Computed example of a mutant assay.
Amino acid sequence: MTTTATTATPTFAFTAPAPYWQAGVDDTLQCVSVHDETHDVRTFTFRAVPARRFAYLPGQFITLELNIDGQTVNRCYTLSSSPTRPDTVTITVKRVPGGQVSNWLHDNLRPGMNISVLGPSGEFSFANAPASRYLFLSAGSGITPLMSMSRALVDLGGDIDVAFVHSARSPADLICRNELVQLSRARKGFHQAAIVQVRDPEPEWSGLEGRLDLAALERLVPDFRERTVFCCGPAPYMTGARELLQSAGFDMQHYHEESFNFADLNAAAGAAEAAPAEPEAAGECGYEVRFNKLGDVVHTKPGQTILAAAQQQGLRVPSSCSKGLCGTCKTKMLEGKVDMKHGGGIRQREIDQGWILPCCSVPLSPVVLDR
């Protein structure tokens, strides 16, 4: 009697550790899983193609470059994963009514699909503000960078003292609800609490109800004034958190926040740069900037970026972060020279091909853009 052995071909095989992901060189991620966090929030997990390990600061973000209806659309999403687990990265995305990118991701992105990305980038991380005690404040999908930080702190071991207070509309909207409870059980120094505006559809909810105020904060974290605060959420939430802490005598030098609404950052940056800048080594003279396809011409002031000049003169140019991070305003330069101080929102090969980021580019000569 002859027996024939058969071996199933594995769909995934462990190999020697892959090289590290190089921002600006590597740019392709493949979706490997999609997980529902709530009724309108999903976590997408990716691995690099080709295989790479990821090293980044907990709290940083990536910029997705997507083709939607024949147009390239850029959007920034914080990594909700932790660099302590370096073989994959995740983003956690809330479906926003009318949101072009969030709806596309929920409706179309599936395991096996590849997307192009930039980054990771960003400065919002406890790694840039070491402290013995932290207070994490978040609302809605603003929980993502703080989940990244929490996962990293728990994974790294050692003594930690973290108080995490998350706000949501209802118990059904609490992102990573069970995981936060598990983290608090796993680590003695990790404490979490949630505040919801309404109990429905969970009338037996035993946590706090309402909005974050001084009474709730004093009850949940009595020593909050002695902690370093990281805060992320919708703009009204963060405004309220700042005002609450300031009124309570908190030292705002120990307050850090991240806005995932780059439109707000863009408006603030445009207002700040609307006035003429002081002449500096780069851009001591103002120059003409011609938008070839639009047919518009703007004139920069000394030291002023192209985006700031365009906004000041009423020209609508696609942009988001205004800091050279996200790549949304990326444009081909047909003629001219600029001084570009970007923050990772453009690849070196793109620069070599003549692409620039108008948000962080000061003309050194007359410029013609292919836009």
Rank of each mutant, 00 (worst) to 15 (best):
P222H: 07
V368H: 01
T239F: 02
G122C: 08
I160W: 01
Q197D: 14
S132T: 15
T28A: 02
A272Y: 10
D40L: 02
P302C: 11
L109F: 05
A13G: 00
G189Q: 06
A48D: 09
R199V: 08
C359G: 08
R133Y: 00
V198E: 13
G344E: 09
F250N: 03
R349E: 15
V367P: 08
G210I: 03
R177S: 09
P203S: 01
F250L: 07
M1Q: 10
Q100L: 15
D159E: 14
W21A: 06
K188Q: 14
C31E: 00
N266T: 00
F12V: 15
E65I: 14
P86T: 08
V289E: 10
T331R: 07
V162N: 04
H166Y: 04
Y237P: 05
L118S: 05
M238I: 12
G157C: 02
L357A: 03
T3G: 12
A235W: 01
C31M: 01
N108S: 13
A274P: 05
V221P: 12
Y77T: 05
E273Q: 15
F14W: 14
A129R: 13
T72Y: 00
D36C: 00
T38W: 03
L244R: 07
P111G: 04
R53S: 12
L66Y: 05
P130D: 06
G327S: 06
A168H: 04
L135C: 11
A16Y: 01
R177Q: 11
R110Q: 14
F262K: 03
F46Q: 07
T90D: 15
R371E: 04
G354C: 08
V25Q: 12
A235F: 08
H342E: 15
V96N: 08
A216D: 11
K341F: 06
V196L: 03
R185F: 04
V367N: 07
G112R: 11
G249F: 03
D223M: 04
P19N: 05
V165P: 10
G233M: 05
L64D: 10
L212Y: 01
L135T: 07
Y56K: 04
S184V: 03
R225M: 03
S82Y: 03
P366L: 04
E209A: 02
G295K: 12
M113G: 00
